[in-house]
Design a protein around this nucleic acid. Structure first.
Lengths: 388, 388
DNA sequence: TCGTAGTTGATCGGAATTGTTCGTCTGGAC
DNA sequence: GTCCAGACGAACAATTCCGATCAACTACGA
């Protein structure tokens, strides 16, 4: 984490982004999140309210309702209005109809179990989105941090609570998709009798291979957009570097190669690497750069922005200028914007993945079994920065 | 860190959403669900009643009876909102004239334009779903009844109101997808600057071929399920009858053929027909039955249940027993259940298509432009009746 | 080194919100 | 018609939030 205090303008931007994420946020949460006192948050809010970016309510702020009337805006929740002592007399409904008993029986908010493969990379933002969406609608219990099938299964079983466990009402899962154990796990999930929503995964289960409910990014679309971007910039010889262990790299490759063919690009390099954390990374990176020099590639799509940053560093040490000699697009946007130069990156809508999964699950919890299986596909976004 | 209580205004918005979902809700249920005491819920309700957003009854609250149905005031939006803004601030309105004050509830309802190719077939149920979902959230204006590109474009232009038209805030469309005009129409839609959601269609637009937002049935999945069903019943020689003019028949064919190959079925008949309304239908039907007899097909998937019913009738007149001699699965389920025998049918989730499209559109209208493009895929459902 | 402008934090009185307790009232069962 | 569980409303208490004022800190330039 960064200990240095960000610039006020930066802080305000983050504040707005945070509020936008959920539509509203409380002052206390914002202050804790930003690491400043509530007073400062309120001052920021006052500024943002003044220029119309936000709207203040007691306890926090919210996105202003989209309205055209400029004069009407502002005068908020009238303080005195609520004290309508004389109001009660008028609001009595003359024909007092009572509601039927037990029109719907709902207990407290449902509990949702969430299992993700990593708590360090990619998923924190998904979790944030899920938490924001669940906020006030459901309780979220998180387990995670493993790519191991057995451990995931163990975590799921604990959440489901076969024998006096947590007893969640539904599950959000990002299970492995490769191999026979993955199929078995999918069948197990489908047979639980609980609503399940997959995140960033697509799986079918059961004898009829019916798809499970899911929310996932169209990674092929994202990498294809990156390829189009490179083609538009005039690159003809391009390369592709993907993380060998990532379940999404297949889609990234597919989209990139498809568009490359469509646009007549020469893919002179197509290589899988170990992740940055692996000791073998620097060797892989060097090999990639060697291959670039040899093949005359002028642009790369690098899966995972951390690897992209490292690659750019090593390239610069070799005297390869970015983007003049080698353009780089990062796939994923965790830290790409902080590199030097800031990297053009494809940003998957991670927070929306989490929020959408919670949304799907709560609707299913409420909506019953007539509801058809929903699969939601989200488009990633290309952020053009200085590395292309 | 206590319970992360949501903002009061947020809580009230959820309360309204909750009441809207079922039309009414009880105070005790709401209080349990929101995790606050009943008195707080009552205070919230009092505020909302003062706004005219809700109506109070003994035991709970409900949506006030809507005044002035959607049909009457096509574009009363602007005028009504302006008047309301000036009025609501200090004047207590005793009777529930819906004048939301722009605090948290959705203020002026957006207007949604909806254009469907047919008002007789398939789409009425989609429209029903859309209308139900829009109820209380948005005004729905419907145009439809044509498969002609120029006329559709004309209808869209009228809704968008280039020159003083209806001026809708967003569009739900089921445009044609074949041919150069279709591409042009897609580009035009994407360039409108209005949120657009496709129904039962998938299209990409713009130089980067970015997909538009859509809600669509996975017809290939449905026909594949039908094929699995037939295979499970022991059929080995099967046939496929699709409507030649339907934009969905391609997907139906694809799914059926894929599963047929996977399961080792012989597709001994694969034929497109004219629709039932066409004078050439009876000839097509006879030809299909001839081909069945000749090829030894024991089961058929017939696209559109009306055609399936007619085909079953003609088969029975020939002495072919259904399902003993010939099993029939209808693709689509408008009237399949009313046939004799009731037909096994694949039912696309039509109402959910409409509801999902409205949902996506209203969320985009509220959510802004940061929201990534959503594409929703729905699974159809196989209803096993007596024809297989 | 000093002064100035801008920003952040601390403190406190007042206001808003929520929960609790109590007595009253409604709607439906008998 | 009578009765009762549950809903309603009012008053009070506890908590939290807001806004204003003052103090402390940093950045920048003379």
């Amino acid at each position: 984490m960064t200990h240095e205090a960000p610039l006020p303008s930066e802080r305000r931007a983050r504040l707005v982004a945070r509020v936008r994420e959920t539509g509203s946020a409380r002052v206390t949460d914002l202050s804790r999140w930003l690491g400043v006192t509530p007073v400062t948050v309120r001052r920021d809010l006052a500024l943002l309210v003044a220029d119309g970016t936000l709207e203040k309510v007691h306890g926090g702020a919210r996105i202003p309702a989209r309205d055209a009337g400029t004069s009407a805006g502002g005068q908020g929740t009238g303080a005195g209005r609520a004290a309508g002592a004389g109001l009660g007399a008028h609001t009595v409904v003359p024909t007092a109809v009572a509601l039927p008993e037990g029109s719907f029986a709902d207990d407290a908010q449902p509990t949702i179990g969430m299992v993700v493969p990593s708590l360090d990379y990619y998923w924190p933002e998904v979790i944030r989105g899920a938490r924001a969406a669940a906020h006030g609608w459901a309780r979220l219990i998180l387990r995670g941090g493993s790519y191991d099938v057995d451990q995931i299964r163990h975590q799921l079983a604990a959440l489901v609570g076969d024998e006096g466990g947590a007893g969640v009402d539904g599950l959000l899962v990002a299970p492995p998709v490769e191999g026979p154990e993955a199929t078995e796990l999918a069948d197990w999930l489908a047979g639980l009798g609980l609503p399940v929503v997959l995140m960033e995964r697509r799986l079918a289960a059961g004898p009829y291979r019916e798809p499970l409910e899911s929310v996932a990014t169209d990674h092929a679309l994202g990498s294809g957009t990156a390829a189009r971007h490179l083609a538009d910039r005039g690159h003809r010889r391009v390369g592709l570097v993907t993380a060998r262990t990532s379940p999404t790299s297949a889609a990234v490759r597919r989209g990139f190669l498809a568009v490359a063919e469509e646009r007549g690009l020469d893919v002179v390099l197509d290589r899988g690497t170990v992740p940055l954390s692996d000791p073998g990374w620097s060797g892989d990176a060097a090999a990639v750069l060697d291959a670039c020099a040899e093949s005359g590639a002028t642009a790369l799509l690098v899966h995972s922005d951390r690897e992209a940053i490292s690659l750019v560093e090593q390239a610069q040490e070799r005297g390869v200028r970015v983007p003049a000699d080698l353009a780089v697009v990062a796939y994923d946007d965790e830290v790409a914007g902080l590199a030097d130069p800031p990297l053009t990156a494809v940003r998957p809508p991670k927070a929306t993945i989490g929020a959408g999964a919670v949304d799907l699950l709560t609707r299913r919890l409420r909506g019953g079994d007539d509801r058809p299986v929903h699969r939601v596909e989200l488009s990633p976004h290309l952020l053009v920065r200085s590395s292309t």
